[in-house]
Design a binder for these strands. Structure first.
Lengths: 252, 252
DNA sequence: GTGTTTATCGTCAGGGAGACGACTATGATC
DNA sequence: GATCATAGTCGTCTCCCTGACGATAAACAC
């Protein structure tokens, strides 16, 4: 084996972010327009190099803050502090994924409540929320009739993996509350599930399930009519993070 | 922000392997003894540097072959080809996780049927299968009464994450069959679940569940008495990879 | 007031899981 | 060879959860 294990090839290590939110009943992801080669002018996921003294989670939290202003939710902190949920997704290291050099990207998944338009911060000049459906369709046309170019690098794969992670994880965890503001109604939570899964759920059975699961929802006492109709109770996310038995995703 | 994004700090990138198997009713992991500093003489997970022209999955498969002789199971190939299941687990990049230099390790999880004693190949002079329970206890004593040193680097964390992944994944997938030989009985599969979860399962309910799930098990027509008792039907793993509804892990 | 929208409570039938009884087919032991 | 221990396999019963869906409640728009 003519390989010297004492030497090691240098890699660049980056973090890329799949930042998901629910806007107008659609699952949306944060996309930035690339200002330089390669893939100049194409949409990409936000991300950047990991700094020499930084942990991977720190780098991801820093990028998230630069792009959205969101603080990352500390996994050690028990209660919702209005920060976004942030977790490692997967790592992508195909030797040809970046034509310039050997880059290994540690993708992270962030879930955030509906936010105002993203602020243009850091190196990214243009950023926007785009429906994932639109970002993932290859070479089609968007709802506005504009031609859609696929995402830069292997970001379509990363985004697809992130969406799949979110879709499966809200089944058996209380993670869907990360898409909601600190106080929310059962109906708002249901619309999150419907947007993420792309299905319609029965409001009565959903209500029974989430209110009947101990520790999932905590009533705050308040009510709201911001969705119209009869006033709905407001809840906060409870301490339970695992849903057992899970919420069942309807077939097909 | 006094940081130049056009420069990038070089990292070493490695793959580490959590190779799990079931031996004598216990969940075991492959451990190698370190021959050099740091952590000389301590047990560690097998692993090594990613080569310049290698994908991460390729590097993991190469390391797995070097340590165990196992071919990795190609995720694209439909049928069991007696290769081990191999999947990416998570990436660990704390700046201080290796005292020598900045190393980012992409951990992979491999599941293998019970194998003969590991062959000493590649750089690792000594390798062994050790019960994960023993590898994970901090500074205690093994069943033989010998003092146990914790695993090198952050490998205890990686191993714990890999075990947790395996424990949760056999709930909703047919992955437990990766611990079995190509043909196996329902009882052998049940003992896999019992070893991985560390619980006792009702043989009758387990039999009903796995034989009643379409596509999970395919009878081969043969029988065996290698476990003693009444001859048992032999099965191969069916095409179904997702178990719906999942196998329920008993509480506590 | 009437209609519309959303929230919430109830009812009912069907399926799956846990608990466990019963029977079967081997090898081991006396 | 009779008996026993061991494993495998089939059934039954009850409970709980789910999906389907009726009914009522409380707001707003006209």
């Amino acid at each position: 084996m003519p390989y010297d294990p004492s030497a090691f090839p240098p890699f660049a290590v980056t973090v890329d972010l799949v930042v998901l939110t629910v806007r107008r009943h659609a699952l949306c992801a944060l996309a930035v327009r690339r200002g330089e080669q390669p893939f100049q002018g194409r949409w990409a996921l936000p991300g950047g190099f990991v700094r020499p003294d930084e942990d991977l989670a720190q780098a991801a939290a820093r990028e998230l803050a630069e792009e959205t202003g969101l603080r990352a939710h500390d996994p050690a902190a028990p209660a919702q502090d209005n920060g976004a949920h942030l977790e490692q997704l997967a790592t992508y290291g195909d030797p040809k994924r970046d034509p310039r050099m050997r880059v290994v990207s540690v993708a992270h998944l962030a879930l955030a409540p509906d936010l105002p338009a993203p602020r243009a911060g850091g190196d990214a000049n243009i950023a926007r929320w785009a429906p994932v459906e639109e970002l993932l369709q290859q070479g089609g046309y968007s709802r506005d009739g504009e031609p859609v170019a696929p995402l830069a690098f292997d970001h379509a794969q990363i985004l697809a993996d992130g969406v799949e992670r979110a879709r499966s994880k809200i089944e058996y965890s209380s993670l869907a509350t990360a898409f909601c503001p600190p106080e929310f109604t059962v109906g708002e939570l249901r619309r999150v599930y419907e947007a993420v899964w792309g299905v319609a759920l029965d409001p009565r059975n959903f209500h029974r399930k989430v209110t009947g699961t101990p520790g999932f929802l905590v009533p705050t006492g308040g009510t709201t009519t911001r969705q119209g109709g009869r006033p709905a109770q407001l809840f906060r996310a409870g301490g339970a993070t695992l849903l057992n038995p899970p919420m069942l995703r309807p077939e097909v």
